[in-house]
């Protein structure tokens, strides 16, 4: 619990300066060395890589089955935009105010897409061939 509240506390996610600023260097160094800060960065990197890819992969599969087009067209469309979805997911993970928000923002659409994909597979196996 202590760990979770530490990770979601915005106070910890301090105002580290943008690249253009070189003042108050000691603050920055001190902050970067904190293990909590580092584990939060590591968690976001992992979330962005694996969560982002999972979201993009599910979206690709779901759209490939459900877009109202010939199946090769649906696959081409879905695959084309999948990398924009992936990039968007990565941006979200690093833009979210807290780690918990970042995880929720990926988890919710992943769950919905998973459910949708399951239904779409079900429909595809019963309906006429695409």
């Amino acid at each position: 619990m202590g760990l979770v509240s530490a990770l979601v506390s915005p106070a910890l996610v301090s105002k580290v300066l943008p690249v253009t600023d070189v003042s108050s260097l000691p603050d920055r160094v001190r902050l970067r060395r904190g293990w909590r800060y580092r584990s939060e960065v590591a968690a976001r990197v992992g979330l962005a890589a694996f969560g982002g890819y999972a979201l993009a992969a599910l979206a690709t599969a779901f759209l490939s089955l459900t877009l109202p087009m010939v199946r090769s067209e649906a696959v081409a469309t879905a695959t084309l935009i999948s990398f924009a979805i992936l990039a968007g997911a990565v941006i979200w993970v690093f833009a979210a105010r807290t780690l918990l928000l970042a995880a929720l923002g990926l988890g919710l659409p992943i769950a919905l897409l998973g459910l949708g994909l399951w239904l779409a597979f079900d429909g595809a196996s019963m309906g006429p061939p695409a």
Binding site: A57, S64, V75, A78, T79, L117
Partner: peptide, 21 residues
């Protein structure tokens, strides 16, 4: 950058092809 990813896109993101075919 985007078109480069797309050029090998089916390899990186094969899940649309495998779901539909």
């Amino acid at each position: 950058t985007y078109t480069g990813i797309v050029t090998l896109g089916v390899m990186y993101m094969p899940w649309g092809v495998s779901a539909a075919y």
